[in-house]
Every structure is written in C-alpha cells, then in structure tokens.
Design a protein around this nucleic acid. Structure first.
Length: 749
DNA sequence: GGCGTAAGACTTTTT
DNA sequence: GTCTTACGCC
C-alpha cells in the first residue's frame, strides 16, 4: 500500500504531494492541513526512493520538527534519523560547526542569546568610547540585526552612510562582528547570515550541500527573512526542487526581518513554480471562520483567498467588554471553571494575549482559584540568572575564548575580584593576544597584581580541574556536578539560606535533571557542546509539555501553528492590538491585523474575545477603547456583551475596602505604597467627560482622596495626568478620568 | 570591593 | 509594578 493511501488527503492536498516537476508554492490557510501535506510529501519522497539524508526540511519550531519526523517514520515504517529537519537556525548551526573553518570559526563556537549580545555590545561601545546615550546598545543591536537579516555586511554600507550616526554605527557593527569572531561566538542572526557568507565564499562547500540535498522543503515560508531566502536560493538553484508552504495572512515576524514579499513573489523568484491553494479549513467552526475572514479582509497586501468549511456553524463568537483587566481576568477564570464543569479539559483551552505583560493578571487569578495553568514564553527557564551562570561555566569549558561568559562568572561566587582585577587580566590577555580565560590558564601568574592572585588562582584551578574531567570523557552530568562543587556556586547558594536561594537551588537541580535525562535517555553519544546548543536554540514552544488539565497561556506570536478547542482572546484594545507603536505605519498595522487573525484561527470550537475600559500599567490606570480591528468586523458575526459592571457587587466591595484604606491613610498621614489603595472606586458617572477642562489651581475631588487642588498638568485628553495636592497634605499623580471638579462632586452628593 | 538604597527605564512580539 | 543602574558608605 502506498503512502498516499495511508493518509487522508483532499484533491488539492493530494495534487500538491504528488506533483514533482520543479518549485512548488502551497498557500495553506490556517487549519487547512498544512502539516499533513508536508508530512505526506516527505513520506512520499522517501517512498519514491529518496534517502532521508537527501531531504532538507525547515520548520518553525524544534517541536514541530520532532513531531514531523515521527509522523514520517510512522508513515514510511523507516527510521529517518539522517533527515535534516529542524529550524533554520539549528540546521545552519550544524552546517557552520562542520564548515565554519572556511570563515574563521572553530567547530566549538558559542551561540550568543539576546542577553549575551547585549553585554558584548556594551563592551564594544565602551572600547570605542561611544556614549551609551548617543547610541543605546539595544538600538545598535536592532539595526545591526536587520542588516544581518538581509545579509548586508558593514563593508557594503560604507558608501551609503551619510550621517555621523550612521558612520558610527558602521564602526560599531564592524567592531561587534570582530568581537564575536575573536571569542568564537555567533549571535542568532549570524547563524543564518554566516551560512550564506560561507556558501558565497566557499563554492566547493556549497556544491557539496547542493548535491546532498535533493529536495528542500520549508514550512511557514511567509516568515522567512532575506538571509533565509538567499540560503534557499543558493541551495536549490540548480535542481529547483523547492517546496514551500505558508500563508501570507499569518506573516507576523516582519519586525524580525521577515519579508512577506518572499511568499508573494515566490513565483517570480523561482520560475516555473506551480501554485496550490488550500482553502478548506478542518479546524474551526463556520462561525469562527466567518469572524476570521471578516477580520483579515481589511488587509490590502495579501493574496486573495477565503477559508471555508463543511462543518456546522457552531457556538457563537463572543466579544465581552469589561471594566478593567482584573475584571477581565476574573471573568475568564470563571468561564474556565464553568467549561471545566462541563467536561472541557484545561489543556483544551488557551488564553492568548498580545504582550507578555498581560499574562500577570491571569496568572494571579488562576493561581488564586487553584486552576492549573502553563505559561509559555515570558522569562524562560534558561534565562534565569542562576541557570545562565551555570551555563556560562559550561560554555567556557567548551569555548575558552568566550569572554562574555568569563566576565559573568569570574567573581561568582565572590572571590574578591572586581573591575580593577578584570582590567588587570584583560591587559595581560591583550598582550598575549588571548582570551581572558586562556591568558589566565597559560599566562604567567606573576604578571597579575598580588592582591588578585588568590582570587584568580581559584578560577584557574576550577577550569584546570574541569578540563581534566572533560579529557577523561566524563559524562556531561558528572562534569556539571563537578562544576557546581568546584566553583563554589552551590555552597554560595546553600550558605544564603533564604527562600530565594532555595528556589535557585531547585532550578539548578532541575537543570541537572534535564541534563541527565538528555544524556542518558536521549543523546548518549553527544557532549556538553550539543546540550548547550540545544538549550540556546530551543523555542518557547519546544519547552512546552502540554498537560491535560493545565490551561495554556501565551502570546499571539507563540500561538502560531497551534490549535485549541476554546480560545480566550483578551486585551483587544487599540494600542494593545494594534500596538500603539505601530499606529503610524499602515504596513505594520496590517501585520497586527494578521496577528489577530492568527489568534482567531487558533480556535476550534469556541472563541471568546474581550476588551477592557481601563488597564493597569506601570501602576497607573490607563483608559482604552475596543480595537479598531473589532470595530471593522460586522456586528452580526458575533455576540457582544457589555459586562463592564460598574455598579455590581465588585464595585460595592471595593468601595468598602477603599473607605477603610482612606481612613488608614488619614491616620498614617504617610503615603506608603502599601497604604495606597490599589483599585480606585469608580462609578460610571464618576468619569469626567472628555470635554471637561482642567486648569492649574482648580479645586477637584477624587472618590478616595477627597478634595484637593491641581498643582500640575501633563498629557492631554484621556491620557492627561494631574498632580493634585489634597487636603490631607498628600500629593498624588492621577489620571484625569478619575477626577471631577469640586462642583460636580457636591451636586452629586 | 561589596552591599545597600534610590532613581530611572521599561513593554510589543522571539530564533 | 518590576528590573536595572548609579551612587554612597562600609
């Protein structure tokens, strides 16, 4: 029985799988069976006699790669270890480890994450004597990143730099790249760009890979950047067997250099392309699809298409209006409990939001109500300080040129070494033209100032001993334990004996466990370096172990490619989605609309959207309005419920609480942060109309703080902030909507 | 050199 | 509200 009969495919899907005559572009709308087609295609190719090792398939996450690999194995009943399937970044890293010598890199190079990049950039700016304020490190990194994403080395920019800033930026770009090279490190962008440079500079190498990969497949093609496009072109030019799958309506990584044009102009770039369009959706109900189609329709830059389904209408899509984000959190939690009582598993539900900061409220309310949840993304495990510290030790062991890691740990735990000691060693390293650790290990100890010798000899011993362990081929988990002991890091934490240090120890134990499982159960033949690479290139979704009971929470970006029975799409306000920062650029607004579209199309059966009137931000309450995207969706496609509830029980509760707090305030006369009421009480008619004008010196009242006088005004409209001197002597900064003129207060009373 | 407090920045999204 | 950085004191 052929593969093609083992997997259910509709006519278009089947055609796409069986076509074998040059470049193929598959427009696969959300939920149209994209993964199915991709899997079937690979399995079919293998059935046709292709060796798995001749297939190069790029997926968006490592998790997707793992799943696809096992599905292909199930279909073909063949082991397919040799197949190259993974993220662009991980496969480029693999190529660069093998071939990097052609561009000046050892196989042991380190991959720098965003935090490492930042510390390196700070060092670079310092060495060039450029002030942080004239060129913020993050900004410089952002610009350099976009250059690298389009494979533009600094040399290519030299003739175009007009302004002083641009010239400085080129200097910084060059110095940054040199610093990376010097310490045998690459950042995420380098993995892609350097592979392209490698192919350009070493044609023989390119030829080998062209020959090796007979078929190139790419998932989520709409999110590829120029570097990835060039990579694909180089790799597939002579045979033209490129199979890309994507959906321009789900292109959401433009800010990271992704070019939606890549998918829109694929046919032009790869002549003879055959296009397939999948429009039948198998995921969502008709009601949800209608809602999604209406949302995305507004976009100008898109290939025309419309999802359809043969499924039933399904439950209504709801749009709820809440008073503030806390009420939104409570209401969503209540709905979750309700659905759980009806038998829906937590794992079938997801709360999706635009920004990570929005997760907080939901975490709090779910924890309070003891509803299990998983937060995907945010500050990941591997970004925690103690984890990064441990990894820095290990990274140094693999690559002793890594100065960023050295700087992180040379005085951790404290060995009496500080900035002056660092400079002392850096001077020695400079003279010897070595990295910091190399200079320490091989240089003359007497060259260092006597007061630092004790501390530095401790560091020297640690790495000398660890290097021995490695030489004797001790397994990674054992080396890790040695490191914890020798470095004194564990002792430092046990010595602290606080709740915080206990948590850190727990995290480190978790890391140790992960390393043990990784080594013993999954990769007995691999070493520390491989573990470190996997850990830095892991996506947020990779670390997600979906549980039956736990409600899923993540950003819209993270949710791409996933599906859930019930989806709560929260915080749909203008300024959140679309993000305020993208207001000015219609192209960016379109990307935000696609982001909303991605969110909507995650839902299989039930979609509940919400927006709030007020949102807490930086300790302030900011007014908000329903997203412009919602406003452009016809009303008959959803059920609107105003649940803003300004008069109900919660408000009454808060009124009582606020009264108490107010009494406390008067007594304390000191406005300590804890004494400050966290939630102002507001009735609908409390809000001043936008037309109300405030002026300096005016008497006003506030529900909680009472009567006072305006001493300064900033901002305007709904964002206006007033500084008010109250009768009890306190001075507060307040949002205009919560303040009324004294006159209206008395009439209301 | 280490530690504490205070002021300031920060939030879009991530390999 | 939280995290990072700067500065002053021990």
């Amino acid at each position: 029985m052929s593969i093609i009969d083992k997997i259910v495919l509709n006519p278009v899907q089947r055609e796409a799988v069986l076509y074998d005559d040059g470049p193929q572009l598959v427009f696969a709308g959300a939920g149209t069976g994209k993964t199915r087609v991709l899997t079937a295609k690979i399995a079919w190719l293998i059935e046709q006699g292709l060796y798995p090792a001749e297939i190069f398939a790029a997926t968006f996450t490592n998790k997707a790669a793992r799943e696809m690999r096992s599905r292909v194995e199930a279909l073909t009943s063949l082991p397919v270890e040799g197949m190259w399937i993974g993220t662009f970044h991980s496969m480029c890293a693999r190529i660069l480890r093998r071939e990097g010598t052609h561009i000046g890199y050892l196989p042991s190079f380190t991959i720098y994450d965003t935090a490492d990049q930042l510390s390196l950039m700070k060092k670079v700016l310092k060495s060039l004597q450029i002030d942080d304020r004239s060129m913020p490190p993050r900004q410089a990194l952002g610009k350099i990143s976009s250059y690298k994403n389009s494979c533009t080395p600094p040399e290519k920019l030299e003739n175009e730099a007009r302004s002083f800033y641009d010239q400085e930026l080129i200097r910084v770009y060059k110095a940054y790249q040199k610093a990376l090279r010097d310490q045998q490190a690459m950042d995420f962008d380098d993995l892609l760009a350097n592979t392209v440079y490698l192919f350009e500079r070493a044609p023989a190498v390119l030829e080998r890979y062209r020959h090796a990969f007979k078929h190139v497949l790419v998932d989520e093609y709409q999110d590829t950047n120029t570097a990835q496009f060039l990579f694909l072109k180089l790799l597939s030019q002579n045979h033209g067997r490129v199979f890309v799958v994507g959906d321009d309506d789900q292109s959401i990584y433009g800010w990271r250099g992704a070019q939606i044009e890549n998918i829109l102009s694929f046919e032009r770039e790869f002549p003879g392309t055959k296009v397939f369009t999948l429009e039948q959706n198998y995921r969502s109900t008709k009601v949800i699809l209608d809602f999604a189609n209406a949302a995305i329709k507004e976009n100008q830059t898109r290939a025309p298409k419309k999802l359809w389904t043969s499924r039933d209408s399904g439950d209504e899509v709801t749009v709820n209006r809440f008073r503030d984000d806390r009420q939104e959190g409570d209401a969503v939690a209540e709905r979750i409990e309700e659905l759980q009582r009806k038998g829906v598993k937590g794992g079938d539900m997801a709360i999706l939001f635009r920004t990570n900061a929005q997760s907080r409220v939901f975490e709090e309310v779910l924890r309070r109500r003891k509803i299990p949840y998983i937060l995907i993304g945010g500050i990941s495990f591997y970004e925690r300080a103690e984890i990064k510290d441990c990894l820095a030790y290990l990274r140094l062991l693999v690559n002793p040129k890594d100065n960023v890691s050295f700087e992180r740990i040379f005085n951790l735990p404290s060995r009496g070494l500080g900035e002056k000691a660092y400079e002392n060693l850096a001077e020695l390293a400079g003279k010897r033209n070595e990295s910091l650790l190399e200079a320490l290990l091989t240089g003359d100890p007497a060259a260092l100032a006597p007061r630092y010798q004790q501390g530095f000899s401790e560091v020297r011993d640690i790495f000398a001993l660890l290097a021995d362990c490695e030489k004797q081929h001790e397994p990674p988990p054992q080396i890790f334990n040695e490191m914890l002991k020798l470095s004194g890091y564990m002792d430092m934490l046990t010595g602290e004996d606080t709740e915080e240090s206990a948590g850190r120890i727990e995290n480190i134990n978790e890391l140790a466990n992960a390393l043990t499982i990784w080594t013993e159960e999954q990769h007995p033949d691999k070493g520390l370096a491989d573990f470190l690479e996997e850990v830095t290139l892991a996506t947020d979704v990779d670390a997600w172990d979906q549980k039956d009971e736990a409600v899923n929470m993540m950003t819209l970006h993270c949710a791409k490619g996933l599906e859930f029975r019930c989806v709560f799409l929260v915080g749909l306000e203008d300024g959140i989605i679309p993000s305020r920062q993208n207001f000015d650029d219609e192209k960016k607004v379109e990307e935000e609309r696609r982001l909303l579209y991605v969110g909507i199309t995650r839902a299989m059966q039930r979609l509940e959207c919400s927006h709030v009137d007020y949102r807490w931000r930086f300790g302030d309450l900011i007014p908000g309005y329903p997203s412009r995207f919602l406003q452009s969706i016809p009303q008959e496609l959803y059920t609107f419920r105003d649940r803003s509830n300004y008069f109900g029980t919660p408000a009454a509760e808060e009124k009582k609480k606020a009264k108490k707090e107010r009494a406390g305030l008067r007594q304390a006369s000191l406005l300590t942060p804890s004494a400050r009421p966290r939630t102002p009480v507001y009735d609908r008619d409390d809000f001043s109309q936008e037309t109300v004008e405030f002026r300096m010196g005016q008497f006003v009242t506030h529900r909680i703080y009472g009567r006072g006088r305006i001493v300064s005004i900033s901002g305007f409209g709904e964002d206006m902030k007033l500084s008010v001197l109250f009768n009890d002597g306190s001075r507060k900064k307040l949002m205009a909507p919560y303040i009324r003129t004294a006159l209206s207060y008395t009439t209301n009373k």
